[in-house]
């Protein structure tokens, strides 16, 4: 049995410890907002927070997060009210949307470290792939979110 806490709920799972966290979140817990894009920690579509840190969940096994606190996109805020989500909404960032859970989770963690980011900070630290090419709006939305968080 492996115990993990996801979005505030404790789960005790009878599962192989080497299962990537991604598949536990999606298939065991049914939280499908976290996406599979590459499976090799390259694209960031599967980004979640493990003890507050942005983590590519395809690249970490569930055995290694036992006892830790995990937040997925579904647990980020009630009613999509997190400033990053609000900024994403205001800028109409998503296109196909498939990468966006990961983009948002990565941006939330990034803004904690860089509350007043420059474009250069954004470019150097955020490496998630968006195949639809929403990067220009992602940059604007991060600046907007930073401003919202200051208020």
């Amino acid at each position: 049995m492996i115990a993990i806490k996801v979005n505030g709920t404790e789960h005790r799972l009878d599962i192989e410890p080497e299962t990537p966290l991604l598949w536990v979140i999606r298939d065991e817990l049914g939280l499908t907002g976290t996406k599979f894009g590459c499976g090799i920690a390259q694209c960031g579509a599967c980004t979640v927070h493990v003890d507050g840190e942005a983590t590519r969940s395809c690249g970490i096994v569930v055995g290694d997060v036992a006892g830790k606190t995990i937040t997925t996109i579904e647990g980020l805020s009630a009613e999509s009210k997190h400033p990053v989500q609000q900024a994403w909404l205001a800028e109409d960032v998503p296109q196909c949307g498939y990468c966006q859970s990961g983009q948002i989770m990565a941006a939330v963690a990034f803004l904690k470290e860089h509350p007043k980011p420059t474009d250069a900070d954004i470019d150097a630290n955020l490496t998630n792939i968006c195949r639809c090419g929403t990067y220009v709006r992602i940059r604007s939305a991060i600046h907007r979110a930073a401003a919202l968080m200051k208020i």
Binding site: T32, K35, I73, S80, Q85, W88, L89, D92, G97, I104
Partner: peptide, 27 residues
């Protein structure tokens, strides 16, 4: 006009084919 799909694409709600879950399903 603001996109209709954005509200579901900022919180993981939008359903893609990969998110399908039906009773009795195997992989």
């Amino acid at each position: 006009v603001a996109r209709l799909d954005t509200p579901h694409k900022i919180n993981g709600a939008a359903k893609f084919a990969i998110d399908t879950r039906i009773p009795g399903m195997v992989y």
